Computed example of a mutant assay.
Amino acid sequence: MTRRTDTQPDLTHPHVGAPFFSTWRVGTPERQRQTVDAIARTWTRRPWPAPGLLGYHVYTGHDGSTLLHHSQWRSEQDYGAFVKTHRQERVDEIDTLVPGIERVRLDRYRRYRSGGRDDRPARVPGCVVIVDIEFEGPDPDRQRAWVDAVFEALESEPNPRHGGISAHFHVGTDGTRVLNYAEWESAQAHIDALAAPGHGVGSATAQWQRVQTWPGLKSSTVSRYDHALGLVPD
């Protein structure tokens, strides 16, 4: 069966071979809550759909309009089998309960590098920050080189920001995107970090300047979310 959990996902789970992230736009905070409830109802009334799905988590955006979905699959083949047999019935029921959901995008990733505080396994994140990077055209080597440059900037940071717990960098399978799933103690800690001198959460160093002006860097967006729903096999 399907069990609801408040435990947030382990982004370093060794059996996750295909982490997916998608965004829905629902319009208002009330519809965010209604959609989360509809997802929970739809899934918990059914058996767990596939052994290759290790967990499914939903987050409410601080913009009051969006939902982030994170599903942890063993492989893309497992996801493909789910789409053929179980996905549509769930989509139909959720759309009946909450009409007018806009499904913005689904992106497929592989986790590349993670880092953070030594005590991060004992910390419960109060806020999840998603940094979405897009490059001009596919280039897997550029994706990884940029992430490596971020770690170099973090390691040389003269004024580390307080409140950050961990950062998990994922590279898109299409070669154009990088997603950082960052865990913070609270939204205010992240807001304070952004307000400190420098650009973003980094100081005005040459290493951060290199990250921010990387050749081919097309766009960068930052969004804050709260974990609202976890679904796992019982």
Rank of each mutant, 00 (worst) to 15 (best):
D6L: 12
Q8H: 10
Q8M: 12
P9I: 02
D10H: 10
H13R: 11
H15K: 14
G17M: 02
S22I: 00
V26Q: 00
P29N: 03
R33K: 11
Q34M: 13
Q34F: 02
D37K: 04
D37P: 01
W43Q: 08
W48Y: 05
P49T: 02
G52V: 09
G52T: 04
G52W: 04
L54P: 03
L54D: 00
Y56N: 11
Y56P: 00
G61A: 10
H70P: 00
W73V: 01
W73F: 03
Q77T: 14
A81T: 14
A81N: 12
Q88P: 00
V91S: 07
E93S: 10
I94Q: 00
D95Y: 05
P99C: 03
G100C: 07
D107M: 07
D107A: 12
Y109M: 03
R111Y: 04
R113F: 09
S114N: 13
S114E: 09
S114H: 09
D119W: 00
V128G: 03
G137I: 06
P138D: 10
D139I: 11
D141P: 01
D141E: 15
R142V: 15
R142T: 15
Q143A: 08
R144H: 04
W146M: 07
W146G: 00
D148A: 07
N159M: 06
H162C: 06
G172D: 04
D174F: 06
D174C: 02
T176H: 05
R177A: 12
V178D: 02
L179V: 11
L179C: 11
E183T: 10
W184Y: 05
A189V: 10
A193I: 11
L194N: 05
P197I: 09
H199Y: 11
S203R: 07
S203K: 03
A204T: 14
W214T: 15
G216Y: 08
L217V: 08
V222C: 04
H227Y: 07
D234K: 05
D234N: 08
D234H: 10
